[in-house]
């Protein structure tokens, strides 16, 4: 295993941990707002780490560029959709969960 492969494995595993934590948050968190926090933030970092891990293996700059582009599009979509879902929940009068 080359150092590049080791780095890729490490980044992919770390990304997987964030996806796992995001999913646990989606299941455990009490309301729509807190679940959106878990989805947007943990998945953004999880995908970012996976993209970084795969970019290490890319044969050319354009492939690495495509990976980064995918990440940016998911960031934009994730943040916008989280906002829209939260705004819709608020308009329907869903009160945020309180301890």
């Amino acid at each position: 295993m080359t150092p590049a492969d080791g780095l890729t494995a490490l980044l992919l595993l770390a990304g997987g941990v964030f996806f796992f934590a995001g999913t646990v948050g989606l299941l455990r968190f009490p309301d729509v707002y807190t679940r959106l926090h878990a989805l947007t933030k943990a998945d953004n970092v999880g995908l970012g780490l996976m993209v970084a891990g795969l970019a290490v293996q890319a044969e050319s700059w354009t492939v690495a560029g495509k990976l980064v582009l995918i990440w940016l599009l998911v960031l934009l979509a994730g943040a916008s959709v989280a906002h829209l879902v939260a705004a819709a929940a608020r308009r329907r009068g869903m009160a945020p969960w309180r301890r």
Binding site: G22, F29, K41, A42, V45
Partner: peptide
């Protein structure tokens, strides 16, 4: 954003 992901992951777990 890395800090954001780590913070929410810690709370979820």
């Amino acid at each position: 954003s890395l800090a954001g992901g780590a913070d929410v992951a810690r709370r979820a777990l």
